[in-house]
Nucleic acid binder design. Structure first.
Lengths: 340, 340
DNA sequence: CTGTTAGCGCTTTCAT
DNA sequence: ATGAAAGCGCTAACAG
């Protein structure tokens, strides 16, 4: 009895009114039943439910969300490249948390262009999302101040607005990684930074502080700010570093893609020590297992989602929070090579 | 002059009526301007635009989508684990395509439970998405027939409904991989399958066909159906395989996670040849670079999104399409080891 | 307990 | 060219 092709798109789906007529009750009663059925006689409710099944009725969430106050039950997630496991992990985690509360997650498509993010965000706000989780770029986000929607920033704070932020302890991470290298006697530790103003700055800060406290001067030629945070750029930069007169004996890569590039750039050269920021799948399977400074990225996403949900529900009215997750060193081999 | 905290959540955003009052025009005029401004005197339009800027007005997409026919400009994407690069790639690609057409993408949270997918899909339909892209599980999807929304399945077809499907040539891929191994003289080729009824079945079919055509009998003890498609299960299964009396000299892993597990299970044993299905980041960086059968996964996502957009727009009214993308062998080393 | 009614913000005729 | 008015499907008073 099952049809085998989708119903023609113009066939209008049944509404509550259809259900009401079918069940011989009022519109309000149907609404009550659909929303839990409190205050409706069991018998009536059954009749309504029967009608719902027969008609295949499904509540129109859009109309429901039109009601003022009743913000749509969806959150927006704005981030860069889903192909980056770092972002994918955040997405998955926040999706799970949102789903548990009956919220869907709308993904804003963020192209590369600088205007893309703002456009995407405004688009999303127009869709009446109940809240936004944003992994912001460097641009000004003050336009969000008057958006009337709760916002939680993830991984890095945004300019022009004081809102909740959930992130990793970048400076401590940078410090731990560098300490580890210096402690083993390395004196020429290079750092390769992806161009993300904030995290980059903090990680570099940790790197410098480690040097200062160890009494080791920083050779500025070993501080490399990549033009792009890709493996390709990191690979090129690594080659250049190793080709110079006095090459580093250790390299600190500031993101997972950069780590990949560094390893590629090093090729068969198994001399220099390498520590990466952010763990990645199969880091332990590479020829020399990769030592990293890692955080619980899924927790980053989960925490952000929980916080946003609480803000959206109005449950949480504290001033903007700043949640910082720890970063720990995971020794696997590449970071434990002694200096030459 | 910029405030530094988000506006209190109860501050209602300005509506078109506010704009109309402010500009001293009628509601309809504002609507016209917002939608391109055709048929409005330039001078009037300017006044309206000025009011829009001053008030920071933003069209309420929800109210807009309430209009019948005017399907919301968002597509739904329902898939499993975003943490799997395979799915993440699909998500990213479809997101880009959708974004170019001004569509947002809503992600359904698909938990592990079998009912999860159906619930998520119905939720999404209730949100009036213009179309659905689904990487379906094995359950029955006939309930979508009467949903009145175009659906495109990705990676595998669904039961109970004849809709568009974009996928990889699984059988050819299985054949190519197995051929490659047999051609090098391997006679004991194991295949490790993740439990996904369809792709698994096709890949296995290719495996069998390759054996048949080569006149090599299949040892059924080498056909392993994993209880779960995780690296852990694949690792355990690989250990078991290699521990048996007459172990295989080659292994064919049916997904990227399975490939990872196989490599882990093999550990230092660098004897057996390995071919994986689906390429993955850093496959070329492992101790022995990994030979894989790969397809353009991003293209899978892109194609699905394009098709869905056309269906949603009513532009494409062809009968359900079945688009199959090729799978090619990428030789990197692990698959070129000779039999012992 | 249940039916009726008034909007939510917008698009879209239909007059003017 | 522009204003007025009728809903879209639903929720939330308000009556009965």
């Amino acid at each position: 009895m099952t049809e085998t092709f989708p119903r023609s798109p113009d066939a209008k789906p049944p509404t509550m009114i259809d259900v009401a007529r079918r069940a011989g009750v009022g519109l309000g009663t149907v609404s009550r039943v659909v929303n839990g059925g409190a205050g409706v006689r069991a018998e009536t409710a059954d009749r309504v439910r029967a009608a719902i099944d027969e008609l295949g009725f499904q509540r129109n969430e859009v109309a429901r969300a039109l009601r003022p106050g009743k913000k749509s039950s969806s959150l927006a997630l704005v981030l860069g490249d889903l192909t980056n496991p770092f972002f994918a992990t955040i997405a998955k985690a926040s999706l799970e948390v949102a789903g548990q509360s009956g919220f869907a997650v709308v993904l804003g498509s963020v192209d590369e262009d600088p205007e893309g993010e703002k456009r995407a965000i405004q688009e999303l706000i127009g869709r009446q999302v109940a809240g936004l989780m944003i992994v912001p770029d460097q641009s000004d986000h003050s336009f969000l101040v008057s958006a009337g929607v709760p916002v939680v920033f993830v991984d890095r704070p945004a300019h022009g607005i004081d809102a909740d932020i959930v992130m990793v302890d970048n400076e401590a991470g940078g410090k731990v990684a560098t300490d580890h290298l210096l402690r083993q006697g390395h004196r020429r530790v290079a750092i390769l930074l992806a161009p993300s103003y904030y995290t980059t700055g903090r990680r570099l800060r940790g790197y410098r502080r480690a040097h200062r406290e160890a009494g080791v001067p920083v050779d500025e030629s070993l501080v490399v700010l990549l033009p792009e945070g890709t493996a390709e750029e990191a690979e090129k930069a690594t080659r250049r570093l190793m080709d110079q007169a006095d090459p580093p004996t250790a390299l600190f890569a500031s993101t997972n893609f950069v780590t990949e590039g560094v390893l590629r750039g090093l090729g068969d050269n198994t001399q220099p020590a390498v520590v990466g920021f952010d763990d990645f799948r199969m880091a332990d399977m590479l020829p020399t297992p990769v030592t990293v400074v890692a955080s619980d990225i899924a927790d980053l996403g989960r925490t952000a989602a929980h916080l946003l949900l609480a803000r959206a529900a109005g449950t949480d009215t504290r001033p903007p929070q700043r949640i910082v997750l720890p970063a720990v060193l995971i020794q696997r081999g590449s970071g434990e090579r002694p200096p030459v």
